[in-house]
Amino acid sequence: MGSLHPVAEWIVSLLLLAGGFFTLVGAIGLVRLPDFYARLHGPTKATTLGVGSVVIASMLYFTLSTGEIAITEILITAFLFLTAPVSANFLAKAAMHLNVERSEETRGQPWEQ
């Protein structure tokens, strides 16, 4: 581990922990929530933000510890944020096509077309 300014060290550590926390929460949601449509929410939001903050932590760490600009990570984050809603949408469409079971509390219906 290189030597970093204490404040920078705190920020990187906090970002890392926040990232791990959100990733874990996304996975807990995947296990705990009642039906498929509800489970779709965890990974699209929490996990994406979790990985996003891990990536930003890595970027800060390398930029500050080597003094050279490290920006490739931005591409990964941008790509994840662009693709997460698209894959969620595709999966929702597939689930509606297959008439996946919904929990009883769900109000409203997906339409048929």
Partner: peptide
């Protein structure tokens, strides 16, 4: 809003109360 969204979803996931989902047109 993405950050707010993740925190909202986190609270919902960790809350023992069952969520009230709905399809909205």
């Amino acid at each position: 809003d993405i950050i707010v969204a993740s925190i909202t979803v986190t609270i919902l996931i960790l809350n023992p109360r069952r969520p009230r989902p709905a399809f909205v047109s």
